[in-house]
Structures are given as structure tokens and as C-alpha cells.
Amino acid sequence: MSPIVLSKPEPGEALDVYLPVSDQAVSAVLCRTDLVGVQRPVYYVSHALHGPELHYSRLEKIVYATAAKKLAPYFQGRAIHVLTDQPIGAVLRTASSSGRLVKWALMLTQYAIDYRSRLAIKGQALADFLVECTTREIQPPVKEDPEAAWWSLATDGSSSKKGVGGGVVITSLEGFKVYYALIYQFSPTNNEAEYEAFVNGLQCARDLGAEYIRAQTDSALVVGQVLGDYEVNGERLQAYRDLAIEKLNFFRAYTVCHVPRLDSADADILSKLAQDALGHMSKIARILVIPRHSIHRLPVPPIQPAEETWISDFMEYLQHDRLPNDPQRARKVKLMAPRFQVQDGRLYRRSYGGPLLRCLNSFEADLVMNELHSEMNKLHSDTCTRLPGVSW
């Protein structure tokens, strides 16, 4: 059998793309069809998945392989036929696709790509071989260490006309159980309630000192999306899935599994009692009030107040060519603008042959002056000097 030799494509010649995927690797093979109808490989690329990439759905992995940067030079100036058994074209044209799919779709719209069903094996055999070899190079997943301090976590959340609530049961290495009743001060959907119990349960376990966690829930959707077996639809569930993975990565190792509701009866009872018997719950469980959706994190307040008007006036004019509405201020800005410049989102004043002078608002100026006077007091000096490189 003759060895496989990469073929050179002709300018403007159409190419076929085969995209096999596995749980741990993706690959892509570009082929051209010669004059006698034989497919010749042109280029190939393979990638071992790591971290969050392992949780991509099968369809996301295929699109991820299609959007590989190394394929871009071969996509330019020619027709590309992507042969796959997945409905990539329909998904990429859907506005409700996940954020990463929309990002990849925008990257691929600049090329003349036609998505077709794969009818024959041909080049797919080579692509499958590549992804298989890539998978072999990946180290096998780490097995559970029987000597590790594994904690257990069971969660359940519910949302119905009767009310909303969640339950969390954490079991330590010694078998001691800690119960949490979650009180939602908002109205989540049932899937969001399950996610809220899951992510808050993970946070509680981490706060108690758990480093190895076995998490279980009766929500097949939560488990499937976290493990990457289910496709995530909607921005809110996508945010919840990303938050859950972020919480899981706090642990040194973790497992996530789906269990029947009977196997998580304690968490289920807690979620129900949190709605109906809150007064009695405080005697057997810790009450955890959730004021808002966990994905709606409070913005970090600014360390300093808004910049003074004169700074914003110069930045608006220098960056966007917009003058203030006040004619007197506009005249002043236009006259003095050549003395200033914006760099890295900050306003600086040009000095004569020296460094740029940083423009400070009143809050920043007070900090600088306080620090300056503090240092001066230590030196028992009454002389006030101006800091080099600072203007206010």
C-alpha cells in the first residue's frame, strides 16, 4: 500500500471537509477530488480537548473543528463542502443558538461554505483515524482515589404554583450530614431552581472545606448539560451551566451523576418544607436565603467616582470628536485639545520635552495629596512639592 501523500489544491478548486469527533479530541481533513474522481487529502488538523472544551456537545465540537484557524487559508477564495451527519447549517442559522455557536457562525460567514450530508465514507476513514490517534495520546481520566477525602452532595430544587425552594444535603468524610433549606426570593423556572440548588450546594460544600466532591441531583437536564451530553439552549441556562462548571473547578476532583428522586429524598423533602414549614426548618436545617438569581452577580462598585466634567469633555472630543453643548466649554476644549492625548483609556497632558502628565479627578488628586503629605510629615518637612508626571 502506498503511503498517503498530501495533494496540492488548484486555485479556486472546491474542497471537501470531513469532521470526526470523540469525547476527547476533534479533527478535520480537507480533500480534493482529482480528474479521475479519487479523493486526495490536502491538509489535516487535530486537537485534543482540554478543560471546558471537554464539556462541549457533539455538535459544538464539530463546529469548533470547522472554525479552526489553521483551516482559514484553505477556505479563502474557494467553495468548501462540509460533510457531516449533524445539522450544522440549520443550527448556525438559528438565532437561539448558544453564545459560542453564534461566535463561530460569525467567523464562518466570511467563507463560501456549504453544509452537506455525508453519504460515503471515503475521506472520513482517514479523519476517524486521526481523531483516534489523537485520543490515544491523551492521558486516561484520573480514577477516584480511595484514600482521598470524598464528600457527598445531594441537591434538589423545585418551582411550582405552591412555591419555590431548594434543598441541599452535604455528607462529610466521617458521615456527618449538614442540611440546608434554600429560600428563593425570586421566581425561577423549575430548571433554574434545580441549578440554583446545585451551584449553591457546591458553594456550601466548598465553604465547609470539601476538596473532593461527589455531586448528585435528580435533574437529568442539569447533569447532562454540565457533563456536555445535552445541548444548552438559551442564554440563562448557558450562564447557569458555566457557573456550575466554575464552582466544580474549585474542587481538586469531582463527579456528577443523575439519581432517581427516591435516592435524594432528603434534599427533596427539604425543598418542599422550605416552601410550607419554614418555621420548623430552622431546628433541623440551616436556612439559606437566595435574594436573586446566582447568575446575576452584583457589579463591583467603582473605586472612584465619575471623572470630573473637564476630563470627560476632553476625552469625548479626542476620542469621538464630540464637543460639549455649552459654547464656552466647547471653545475651551477645542482650543486646548492639542495639549492633551488619550492613552489606554486615560487622559494625559503633554509636557515640554518631558513625560506625559496624568490627569486626575478630585478623588484621585486627594489620594495623591494625602499620600504626599503623609510622606512629608514623616520627613518633618513643611515644603510642598509637586509630584512629577501628575496633573490635576
Results as ranks from 00 to 15, higher is better:
222 V>C: 09
82 V>R: 00
362 S>A: 12
185 Q>L: 15
362 S>Q: 13
365 A>Q: 12
47 H>P: 02
162 K>T: 03
315 M>Y: 05
361 N>E: 09
178 V>D: 00
329 R>L: 04
18 Y>R: 08
389 G>R: 05
97 S>E: 07
14 A>K: 11
192 E>A: 01
240 Y>T: 03
72 A>T: 04
240 Y>S: 02
377 N>S: 13
241 R>C: 14
88 I>F: 05
36 V>D: 13
41 P>Q: 11
361 N>L: 01
185 Q>F: 08
241 R>A: 09
14 A>G: 11
91 V>G: 03
320 H>I: 08
236 R>K: 13
238 Q>M: 00
100 R>K: 15
340 F>T: 08
363 F>G: 05
300 V>Y: 08
267 A>C: 02
212 Y>L: 04
223 V>I: 15
19 L>R: 04
134 T>H: 11
217 T>R: 07
69 K>T: 07
102 V>T: 05
81 H>R: 09
226 V>H: 06
265 A>V: 07
105 A>W: 03
304 Q>S: 14
334 K>A: 14
106 L>D: 08
383 T>D: 11
165 G>P: 10
141 P>G: 02
324 P>R: 08
370 N>P: 01
155 T>G: 09
161 K>G: 01
197 A>R: 03
108 L>N: 09
231 E>Y: 00
213 I>T: 05
214 R>T: 01
248 L>E: 03
329 R>G: 01
301 P>W: 04
264 S>G: 09
271 S>R: 06
300 V>C: 12
363 F>H: 15
111 Y>F: 15
169 V>L: 15
262 L>R: 12
10 E>R: 14
376 M>D: 09
246 E>F: 13
311 I>C: 12
197 A>Q: 00
358 R>H: 15
12 G>N: 15
108 L>F: 08
243 L>S: 05
368 V>A: 13
299 P>H: 03
223 V>L: 13
307 E>H: 15
19 L>K: 04
39 Q>H: 11
198 F>C: 05
245 I>K: 14
75 F>I: 00
137 E>V: 03
158 S>N: 11
316 E>Y: 08
157 G>A: 12
16 D>A: 12
127 A>S: 03
93 R>E: 14
16 D>H: 10
128 D>K: 12
156 D>G: 01
327 P>C: 07
77 G>S: 02
83 L>K: 10
331 R>I: 04
